[in-house]
Amino acid sequence: AGIELDPVFITSSLEMLKELVLGHAAATLLPALSVAREIRSGQMVAVPLAGKKGIHTQIDLCIAPDRQLSFAATKLADFIERFMREVTAG
């Protein structure tokens, strides 16, 4: 869109970004999945970006290929994968 941004905060921590927003110190662009709980609880609001397309992000569930997961870890990974597919599908 030709817009230049001058970021005040730069961090790779989603929790830090969310705390800055909750503390009224910043606005941020985050994937809906990362703030779904805060939106549901009314702590944050999502403001759609104008235009035909939003910003697409990729979220990966990473599991070491040479590691045998425990039963509980397998169930958790399955749940996360299913949840991510459902959220991103609709």
Results as ranks from 00 to 15, higher is better:
V47D: 06
D60C: 08
R40T: 05
E86C: 08
D78H: 08
M44Y: 07
V21E: 09
T11K: 09
I55S: 10
D60V: 11
T28H: 01
T11L: 08
R82S: 11
M16A: 14
G2P: 05
V8P: 00
E38C: 02
R82F: 04
D78P: 00
F9G: 04
T88S: 13
T88A: 15
L69F: 00
E15R: 14
V47C: 05
G54S: 15
M84W: 00
L5N: 08
I59Y: 00
K52N: 04
L5W: 08
R67I: 15
I63S: 03
L5Q: 07
A72Q: 09
G2E: 10
A25W: 00
F83V: 03
M44L: 15
F71I: 10
Q43T: 02
H24Y: 10
A1I: 09
F9Y: 14
A25Y: 04
A73R: 03
A73K: 07
M84D: 02
Q68K: 12
F71Q: 15
R85S: 12
P31V: 10
A89I: 06
H56C: 06
T88C: 11
Q68D: 12
A72P: 02
A26L: 01
A25H: 10
R37T: 15
I55G: 04
R82W: 02
K75L: 15
Q58R: 12
V8F: 11
A27N: 08
F83I: 05
A72K: 02
I39G: 07
L29W: 08
G23Q: 11
A73W: 05
A1N: 05
P7G: 06
S41F: 02
A64K: 10
A73Y: 04
G23H: 07
A32P: 02
V45L: 12
L76R: 12
L33A: 15
Q68N: 12
K52I: 01
S13G: 03
E86F: 04
L29R: 07
P31C: 08
M84Y: 03
A77M: 06
F71A: 15
E19H: 07
M44W: 06
V47Y: 02
S13Q: 06
S13W: 06
Q68Y: 03
A50H: 01
T28F: 02
Q68G: 07
A73M: 05
Q68F: 02
S70D: 09
K53A: 15
V45Y: 03
I59A: 14
A27K: 09
I39E: 09
H56I: 13
V47N: 02
L5Y: 12
S70C: 09
D66H: 13
L30I: 12
V87F: 10
R82T: 05
S70G: 10
V47P: 01
F79T: 03
G2T: 01
G23V: 06
E19Y: 06
E19S: 14
T74N: 09
A27E: 10
V21T: 12
R85P: 03
L61S: 00
G51R: 03
L29P: 00
I63Y: 01
L30M: 15
A89V: 07
I10G: 06
A26N: 05
P7C: 09
E4S: 11
E86G: 06
V21K: 02
E38Y: 11
S70F: 05
I59S: 10
G2Q: 09
P65C: 05
P48Q: 04
G90C: 04
L5S: 09
C62I: 14
V87A: 15
V35S: 04
A77D: 03
H24I: 06
D6N: 13
I3P: 01
E38H: 10
T57V: 13
K52A: 12
M44P: 00
